[in-house]
Write a protein that binds this DNA or RNA. Structure first.
Lengths: 242, 242
DNA sequence: CATGCATCATACTGGCCGGTAGCCATCCTA
DNA sequence: TAGGATGGCTACCGGCCAGTATGATGCATG
């Protein structure tokens, strides 16, 4: 069977540019194969994205590198040409997911508003990140699946986020914009609620990540108990947030 | 090498009756092997517990049935003598974890208090369940890891919980005990925050599940924004709840 | 056209692990 | 004390899959 080069998977699914995600379209740079874009970085990122997509749908352990390669219409050694192993692939997805959050924290550094407002902004970015293509990888990167070195690295990144939230909570309690609370527990609750988005935000993406984050944040701010001032319905069913 | 029966794992670790968990002590019914407790159900439950413990520490995919067998100081076919396969093992753990929550909902059926109070009670039980030995299995039982039948079964059980929370939220909005909100998003936020306990409540169990749940619930009820009435610290750092 | 580099495919290996076949030991019952 | 029932073990199989050995192809440069 000669003449069967560079076309392992006939056309299982051209990855189809995820319907309503972030504006980052993903059209595999291999495709018709004859153009040979040589930009290594672009292809490498395509591999990362494809991995994130596959992990997202099938889980890390149920995704083989052959799957990822097939989605890109290349073969497994090609994938290995751009990343060193599967673990690193997951790590890259993790970093891609968490980087926007770190950026949001850097933005929230300068205190141009009270701490609650800055926390709100950070949580909004957080929610969007979790709802992104890399959210699953970010949230579900288990220490158990990784080598000790990677595990430590990921843990430190996660801890950085956690500490950032706690810090904003403390600042808010100092400047009076946040109700007194245990910063550790509160940070766990906030991060947990947002992290969990990655579990249910899969099918039916009727709300954008920003909308979800906004809905959550208003709930966190107001609480369940009716406020004395305005107990009437001002925003009865979300959906018009943001 | 004769005379090597019934002692595969010399004494890797007698499971040691987990340090500070629920009062359900777990002492493997095989142990000295000579007593031959015949109660099949007891041994079966020991297998489930051991599986939950192992999944909890190492994750489902990183736990082999040999691991579970070794933890019980028996061999793999013995495990298969009590459960049909690994998937069923995970399912049993899931059910064991979720059953207390369903019970809490049944208790919350009779409206002897306003809906917010009943929701608070349910969430307390929810948090305790997630912090239990089976919490991880309950929270992390992924549809991807299961056959379609089991996946559907689990999904329906999870949905039952979700709908229960939404119902209490709606009831609370009707009886005025809960601030108007989108019940779907709010239920996601509440369940997510509580589910996430399973991720960080592992080492350092300085708080009990009930304490954590109580801390979360007060935060959910009050929100982050300071209340007009009492903005002073009444319970600045948790730890003395319950 | 020759050489070298970058890119990628075919085809394989080796280990792990879920699951099973077949056998043995002990206990219960008659 | 025979014989089934119960409970368990050793030893194995087969599939999946991460990762690789080897080499082919195309492009750039001289």
């Amino acid at each position: 069977m000669p003449a069967s080069r560079r076309k392992i998977a006939p056309a299982r699914a051209p990855l189809a540019a995820s319907p309503a995600s972030a504006p980052a379209t993903r059209s595999s740079p291999w495709r018709a194969s004859r153009e040979r874009v040589r930009d290594r970085q672009i292809k490498r990122e395509a591999v990362i994205r494809a991995a994130a997509h596959a992990f997202n749908r099938k889980g890390y352990h149920n995704t083989s590198l052959d799957d990822i390669a097939a989605a890109l219409e290349v073969s497994k050694p090609t994938v290995y040409y751009y990343v060193s192993n599967k673990e690193q692939l997951l790590f890259e997805c993790f970093v891609a997911g968490i980087e926007p959050i770190r950026r949001a924290f850097r933005q929230a550094r300068q205190p141009k508003a009270n701490a609650r407002a800055r926390l709100t902004a950070v949580l909004g970015h957080y929610g969007q990140a979790v709802a992104s293509e890399f959210g699953w990888c970010m949230v579900r990167a288990e220490d158990q699946d990784l080598s000790p070195a990677m595990s430590a690295h990921i843990k430190s990144l996660k801890s950085e986020i956690d500490q950032g939230i706690r810090r904003l909570l403390r600042e808010g309690m100092q400047d009076g914009s946040i109700h007194p609370c245990d910063p550790k527990m509160t940070a766990f609750a906030l991060a947990g609620a947002l992290n969990w988005i990655a579990h249910w935000y899969r099918e039916n993406r009727s709300m954008t990540g920003a909308e979800i984050a906004a809905a959550f944040v208003t709930m966190f701010e107001n609480g369940l108990t009716p406020r004395a001032g305005a107990e009437t319905s001002r925003r009865p069913a979300g959906r018009l947030a943001r």
